[in-house]
C-alpha cells in the first residue's frame, strides 16, 4: 500500500478582478489566478449556454469565440483572455432575430438533445464568418472537435450549408416575437350562419 497523497484544494490566493467583454457587454468579475474560462463564464458571468461536457477538450460543448476565433473554454485560463471580446451562444442572435446558423440548426434537425449545440453553433458561426460558402470538407474540419451523440452529424452539416446559403443571400433568422398569425384578422366578428338560419 502506497502512502496516500493529498493535493489541497483550499485555500487559494484571494480573487482578483477579471475583465472582458462578453457578448458585447463589459464584465468585471472576481476570479482566481488559476480560474478556468469555462468556470468563470458559467459561475460568474452567467452565460450558462456554455456547456461543460467532458471538461477535457474533447467534446467541444464549451467552445466560445475569443476575438472571433473558436476556443475551448474548458482548457483556457480566464486571465489569458483578459480584456478580450468573448462571444458565447447567447451572443449570436441579433435581439430576437436568430443568427442564420441558429435558425438552420433549429429547422434542419441540427439539434436534438441540444447539449452540444452551443459549441457547434459558435464554431460554425466563426467558419461562416470567414467562409460563407464552405465545402463539405471545410465544414467537417471546422466541426471535427465537436462531439455530437444524437445526430450523427449529417443534419448538422446540412444546417451549416443552409445557414451559409442564408448568409450569402443576406437573410437573417426570423423573430418569433412577431405574431405568428394575424392579430387583427379581417372579417366579421360574428359567426357566418347558414342562409335562412333563424338564430
Amino acid at each position: 500500500m502506497s502512502a496516500p497523497i493529498h493535493i489541497p484544494m483550499v485555500p487559494s490566493d484571494p480573487m482578483e478582478a477579471w475583465t472582458a467583454r462578453v457578448n458585447g457587454a463589459q464584465f468585471t468579475e472576481l476570479a482566481h489566478s488559476h480560474s478556468i474560462l469555462l468556470d468563470v463564464l458559467r459561475d460568474h458571468v452567467g452565460t450558462l449556454g456554455v456547456k461543460r461536457g467532458c471538461d477535457m477538450g474533447t467534446c467541444g460543448c464549451c467552445a466560445v469565440l475569443v476575438d472571433g476565433e473558436p476556443v475551448l473554454s474548458c482548457l483556457t485560463l480566464a486571465f489569458e483572455v483578459e480584456g478580450k471580446e468573448i462571444t458565447t451562444v447567447e451572443g449570436l442572435a441579433d435581439g430576437h432575430h436568430l443568427h442564420p446558423i441558429q435558425q438552420c440548426f433549429a429547422d434542419h434537425g441540427g439539434s436534438q438533445c441540444g447539449f452540444c449545440t452551443p459549441g457547434f453553433l459558435v464554431v460554425s458561426a466563426a467558419l461562416l464568418d470567414k467562409e460563407p460558402d464552405p465545402s463539405e470538407a471545410a465544414i467537417k474540419e471546422a466541426i471535427e472537435g465537436n462531439l455530437c451523440r444524437c445526430t450523427g452529424y449529417q443534419q448538422i452539416v446540412t444546417s451549416i450549408q443552409e445557414a451559409g446559403e442564408m448568409l450569402r443571400n443576406g437573410l437573417t433568422g426570423d423573430d418569433r416575437t412577431e405574431a405568428a398569425s394575424d392579430p387583427h384578422p379581417v372579417g366579421p366578428d360574428e359567426p357566418t350562419l347558414p342562409p335562412g338560419d333563424a338564430r
Partner: peptide, 9 residues
C-alpha cells in the same frame, strides 16, 4: 493533431 479546436490553442 487532435482536433481543430485543440489546434487553435
Amino acid at each position: 493533431i487532435a482536433s481543430t479546436l485543440i489546434r487553435r490553442s
